[in-house]
Design a protein around this nucleic acid. Structure first.
Lengths: 358, 358
DNA sequence: GAAACCTCTGCAATCGATTGCATTAGTTTC
DNA sequence: GAAACTAATGCAATCGATTGCAGAGGTTTC
């Protein structure tokens, strides 16, 4: 009914409440500084006019945007989208908006982020993309780290940033130990994408578990892979070519695990009958494929929430700590249907050679 | 090296280039209005100072935020996250930022969106969430639709908004026809969530295909479902209880299809050996589960791109057309491994009763 | 050569909220 | 009862870019 000509401003509220704009502003941001009755008049005026503060004006004056920038390598990936969900929730609760920036082809991403900061559109950066150019980033943050920045999930080696991540290496070790505990001795690993930090950490965890158990790591059991389902399928094809196959595989993530299992199936091998497989991440997918996937759960929602919260603390605290802070969340083993004891014949067949090596 | 004390402003550029700020502003936004040499001096000054326009100041003056708000029911869902990806790309290309707003518990979402507009943080709204309160929305858009708004994927019935979506009903009809063409006569449908517009459209398409082919639709073959994998698994449990089972199922989406298939498997039924299943959406998942899922592909990336483009056109065109525009993208049948001819015994068994009904 | 017309540039107001400083009125202290 | 203090409010500058208006200088037109 009420045809709104223009969005109401603080002036309108002030006029209606018969006070100055300064008083209105104070009534809204620090109510204790305004007398009870004036406050009541202003509340009423706000209600009647339907006033909402203009964020641009506020940003301009206060030099804060109440917005964070979330940089992701791939929003389309369910791994990240669940995290983004949690980030958005946390930010919204604390009155912040969330701008998303997906990785761009080329390495222009760093520049794009720089632009967001320079143009005062965002107050802080939540970086999930480890591939951003380090130099561009350093240029962004300057020396005394003037830009609130948290690197999450991925990690930029040797860079002095706050990080929030999960215990990748230890989790990978646990996943491998689960297979060992089941009786597997010949265990392979589908690697993550080449050059990725996480790939390295998970491989290290796998290697440590094998070493500790005194098991052999054959180079041909390290299957080239990646974080996509296709990569898992390709790894399965390579797996089939092995003359001396492992009885279990630790895959770098759930998607490669699922691709790997479906690749096995296509070629007549059963999981977990012939080969046990353990994944990493615990995507929704994992519980619902058949057989349901045994995997290491990464607390993705918690990670998003904590990262966003920490970033906003950083923004509001104004303390640009010299000491980077590292928060590590722990993962959890979720045992489902893709892992089982090794097949009897395979074990006896492999027995001698495995012993011979030790 | 260069320790930046403060972000440079247009004043700094003006001083360096020895012109007024007005000229700098014009040189950047309408270069043809500034002489060649002045322009060169200003470019140089911009380069040296590292100037980037302050977006808050610009927004305040021009009353545009160069930002769109994308409202989603569930960012964590891969269906939407791929769309969001495309939206972000398109928006970025056209110089717009993307703020995301996930659905909030309660029905406060509409108010939250209203706030974004009233506070001048966003110029337009891309609405993927059909559950937003219609009244709150109308209040937002006012009568002559002053707020650029596009409803995508979902649709708000009887509301005069621009829409971008796929041909759900027709696509569902095609999916069902595929099953009929394979020789199935007893075909069931795992429904989407109750009350959802898409659920209705897909069910209608299913019903039309069945009618046109002269096939019976038994009420007990309409299995309660939803868009989640769990829902598919529950539907499979109900399916098993049927005394007279369909030989094929059209599931409302890929996730319910995958859940359904895994539910069948758990209970000893094979797909497509015993039951053929066709899904809807063509998520990444679909190609990589085993067997790979036959499904109707929705052009999600195209949808995101087109919706974002149309919204920005709307914002920039300034033409608040009275006539709502409806863009319909078409889906594509993707035949993979979950559909096959019906099993011979089941067909002969069902033959008489099916004939009797006709 | 006066009028009309460009082209280029600067002045200063403007967008809407915040905030340092000043002012008024009322209260406490000794 | 003067001094000191506190509480509540207003004035006006400020954040940084954009833009209507006007003026300077030059060119074209008749």
């Amino acid at each position: 009914m009420t045809l709104v000509k223009k969005t109401p401003t603080i002036q309108d509220v002030a006029r209606f409440a018969e006070v100055s704009t300064a008083t209105v502003s104070r009534a809204l941001s620090s109510p204790e500084r305004v007398s009870e009755q004036t406050r009541a008049r202003i509340s009423e005026a706000v209600r009647v006019t339907g006033y909402t503060p203009n964020q641009s004006a506020r940003s301009l004056r206060q030099r804060t945007a109440r917005t964070i920038l979330v940089a992701l390598p791939d929003i389309g990936n369910p791994f990240f989208s669940v995290i983004l969900d949690a980030v958005e929730r946390e930010a919204a609760c604390r009155g912040y908006g969330v701008l998303v920036a997906n990785r761009f082809p080329g390495n222009s991403s760093g520049l794009r982020m720089r632009d967001y900061f320079m143009s005062n559109r965002v107050d802080g950066l939540l970086l999930f993309d480890g591939s951003v150019d380090l130099e561009q980033l350093m240029m962004l943050t300057g020396d005394p780290m003037p830009v609130p920045l948290i690197v999450a999930c991925e990690e930029i080696p040797n860079a002095p940033f706050h990080t929030v991540k999960t215990d990748n290496s230890y989790a990978a070790e646990q996943a491998t130990r689960h297979l060992i505990a089941l009786g597997h001795r010949r265990i392979g690993h589908v690697l993550g994408p080449r050059g990725n930090v996480l790939t390295g950490e998970r491989q290290r965890g796998y290697a440590r578990a094998m070493q500790v158990a005194g098991l052999e790591i054959r180079p041909e059991w390290l299957l080239q892979g990646g974080f996509a389902m296709e990569a898992g399928q390709v790894a399965a094809a390579h797996f089939m070519c092995l003359r001396d196959r492992p009885t279990a595989i630790f895959a770098a993530n759930d998607e490669s695990a699922v691709g790997f299992i479906s690749g096995l199936r296509q070629r007549g091998l059963d999981c977990p009958g012939d080969v046990s497989v353990v994944g990493f991440d615990d995507l929704e997918l994992a519980a619902h494929v058949w057989p349901p996937l045994t995997t290491m759960r990464q607390p993705r929602a918690a990670l998003g929430r904590i990262a966003a919260g920490a970033l906003i603390d950083l923004i509001e605290g104004g303390r640009r700590d010299r000491m980077p802070m590292h928060m590590v969340l722990s993962s959890e083993m979720i045992v489902r249907g893709t892992t089982a004891r090794p097949p009897a014949p395979a074990t006896s067949e492999a027995g001698p050679s495995a012993l011979a090596v030790q």
